[in-house]
C-alpha cells in the first residue's frame, strides 16, 4: 500500500507558523509535522489556537512561516487550491449544507474531483462505512442528530479523497457511544491510506486513539511526542487530565 511505503515520512511539515486576526497574534512560531499514515492528535483547551492553526493550514487566513504538504508549498495557495492538493478539513461545528440532502452533502465533498465517474461507487463505500447515512441519504442534513451530522461531515470530507483529513472538535457535544464509533471509523480509514489530524479539547480521548500528539497552549506547542507517552507525562496529566 502506498501509505505504508512512506510511513514515518512527513506528509505535512509546519515550521515557525504565526497567524492572528486583525493584528492580534494568536499563533506563535508553531512547528509540527504529520507523518504518512498516522493519526495525529492536536490537543489543547478552548482558545489555545487549534482552530486558528487549521484555518491557516487551509489558507482561510493569512500567516507567516512554512507550510509544506506532500512536497508542495501551501503558503501562496488559495483555499480551493489547498483542497485540491488533498488537504481536507472537517470544520468545527460541522458546517454542513443544512438544507441539502445527506447525499448532496457527500457529493459536494467530491465537487473538485477529476474522476467524477467513480463518485457513485465512493458514495456506496461511505454508506457502508456509516450505515446510518445510507438510511438517511434523502434526508436534509440539518434535520439529523448531532452524531449523524458529524458522520455526514466526515463522510463529506472523505468523499474528497483526501491525503490528510483534519477533523476539528470531532467529539464536541456527542454521546460517548457515538464518539467511540467515530474513533473506530478513523482507525478504518487509516488502513485505507488516509492520514488523520484530530484536533480535540477532549485530550484523553484524542491521545488514546492517536499514534502521536501535540499539546497546544496559548498559541504555541508546549508538548509533543508519542501519544501513550504524553498521556503518562506527569506535566500533561497534571495540567489537562486532572490526575
Amino acid at each position: 500500500m502506498r501509505a505504508s511505503d512512506k510511513a514515518g515520512e512527513a506528509l505535512l511539515a509546519v515550521t515557525d507558523l504565526s497567524a492572528g486576526y486583525g493584528g492580534m497574534p494568536v499563533l506563535r512560531d508553531v512547528s509540527l509535522e504529520v507523518r504518512h499514515g498516522e493519526i495525529l492528535a492536536l490537543v489543547g483547551s478552548n482558545g489555545a489556537g487549534k482552530t486558528t492553526l487549521l484555518r491557516a493550514l487551509s489558507r482561510m487566513i493569512a500567516s507567516d512561516g512554512g507550510i509544506r504538504f506532500a512536497g508542495r508549498d501551501l503558503a501562496p495557495m488559495t483555499p480551493d487550491e489547498v483542497f485540491g492538493a488533498g488537504l481536507v478539513q472537517v470544520p468545527e461545528g460541522r458546517q454542513l449544507f443544512d438544507r441539502m440532502t445527506v447525499e448532496d452533502n457527500l457529493l459536494m465533498g467530491a465537487y473538485r474531483r477529476a474522476d467524477q465517474a467513480s463518485v457513485r461507487g465512493d458514495l456506496e463505500r461511505m454508506y457502508a462505512l456509516f450505515p446510518r447515512l445510507g438510511e438517511r441519504r434523502r434526508q436534509l442534513a440539518g434535520s439529523m442528530s448531532g452524531g449523524e451530522q458529524q458522520m455526514c461531515a466526515m463522510a463529506r470530507g472523505l468523499m474528497a479523497k483526501p491525503q490528510l483529513l483534519m477533523i476539528d472538535e470531532m467529539s464536541l457535544g456527542l454521546a460517548p457511544v457515538i464518539v467511540e464509533q467515530l474513533m473506530e471509523v478513523l482507525a478504518t480509514i487509516r488502513t485505507e491510506g488516509v492520514t488523520v489530524l484530530l484536533v480535540e479539547q477532549d485530550i484523553h480521548l484524542a491521545l488514546s486513539g492517536a499514534d502521536r500528539g501535540y499539546v497546544m497552549e496559548t498559541g504555541a506547542i508546549v508538548h509533543g511526542g508519542d501519544a501513550k507517552a504524553l498521556i503518562d507525562d506527569p506535566a500533561v496529566r497534571k495540567a489537562y487530565l486532572g490526575l
Binding site: 487551509s58 482561510m60 483555499p79 480551493d80 483542497f83 485540491g84 481536507v88 478539513q89 470544520p91 458546517q95 454542513l96 449544507f97 443544512d98 438544507r99 441539502m100 459536494m108 465533498g109 465537487y111 473538485r112 463529506r156 474528497a160
Partner: peptide
C-alpha cells in the same frame, strides 16, 4: 447555504 464550507470544499 454556507459560503465557508463551500470554500473549504473547493
Amino acid at each position: 447555504q454556507n459560503l465557508v464550507a463551500a470554500r473549504l470544499y473547493g
